[in-house]
Write a protein that binds this DNA or RNA. Structure first.
Lengths: 192, 192
DNA sequence: TCACTTGCCTAGCAACGCTAGGATAGATTC
DNA sequence: GAATCTATCCTAGCGTTGCTAGGCAAGTGA
């Protein structure tokens, strides 16, 4: 049975290779450059191999998104755990979120801009996505304010961060006041 | 010379037809369905005719975006002009913005999600885009708060609205608390 | 009437996502 | 050790995309 196990291991390894390569390619040249042909060439297999691991390009994007969600959650928790006041925690959360979006634009797109075939905000939502939201909720719940439901409050704060992240990166917002905008968000939205 | 004038008129008319048709098709079936072939068929001309008006598909998206920017500005100004208090004006602005995004998803995408080849937040930014931002600024400047630059404040508020609009429509936010989220944004961000 | 310009269409290119079907290499059986 | 069977992977190709070259025909001016 060890032959079968070895093959399964190799197969899993190749799947990780596909996701990693897709991510690298997307970060280097954008998702438009991630074609099935180019991706296949980079992993040194033929195109149809991709389809033995994923239903299609969409599912590959989804796999990158899930990887990103896990990292985002880790990043946010790491940033907030080092802060001592509620105000500092919220600011750290905002900066960690925007940093992630800035330094991993392709992954961020896979998560929140592109169609990766994932379901959001539902029962069958994949665990990494739920957990990323939970990471935000943990810090934001304590600054929602009296009588304000932490869920919708987190959603609103998150939406604001998402707007800043996407509009800034798309060149729709001038970069000079970036820090000022974050301060505004933290000081006004959070009840600290 | 009247022959030449007639031809110019007809040409301008056909250009409007292209933009209008692209917009209709995009609203009906999404931008993915707006292929040059389908678009050409709908306007009852051949594909290359499109390229005698626009450099490519991107520029057609850009044209739809500019049309949308004008309408968005009109909508926001109409909504705010009917409100009597600062609080009401900001709330009306937020609702008008989100209504526009909800009822014209394809146009909204052309404006803020897709690449229409337009430049934003710069000197050479097309007038309709500048004016749409100005429409937001007019109402939001009066609630920025003491010592807060209205520009970055408007940018921040806008980003929050944009986040709500896109995440809601993409199914990333549950629809049930939509109104609650708007209230939060208005009550907290604006100094009313 | 003839030349010329203008405007449009047919046909085709390279690249896309995805798939059918055949070849080959390895495991299993006798 | 030879034969068969299975699983794995590749070649080739389909239909579609954005975009363009080249030719035809209708209308303009001499």
């Amino acid at each position: 049975m060890s032959v079968k196990e070895r093959k399964e291991r190799e197969r899993a390894e190749r799947e990780r290779l596909i996701v990693r390569t897709a991510r690298e390619l997307a970060e280097q040249q954008g998702w438009d450059a991630v074609t099935t042909r180019r991706l296949a060439e980079r992993i040194e297999y033929s195109q149809p191999v991709l389809y033995s691991h994923f239903r299609g390009k969409r599912e590959i994007i989804g796999a990158v998104a899930l990887e990103g969600a896990t990292e985002l959650a880790v990043g946010v928790r790491a940033a907030t755990s080092g802060a001592n006041s509620r105000r500092e925690r919220v600011a750290a959360l905002a900066r960690a979120y925007l940093d992630f979006a800035e330094h991993n634009p392709a992954v961020y797109d896979a998560l929140f801009q592109l169609d990766g075939g994932l379901s959001y905000a539902q029962e069958d939502t994949p665990e990494p996505l739920k957990d990323a939201f939970a990471a935000l909720l943990e810090t934001l719940a304590e600054v929602a304010g009296d009588g304000v439901d932490p869920g919708p409050f987190t959603e609103t704060f998150w939406a604001a961060l998402h707007g800043l992240a996407t509009l800034t990166r798309a060149g729709r917002l001038p970069p000079e006041y970036a820090e000022h905008r974050v301060e505004l968000l933290v000081d006004r939205l959070a009840m600290v």
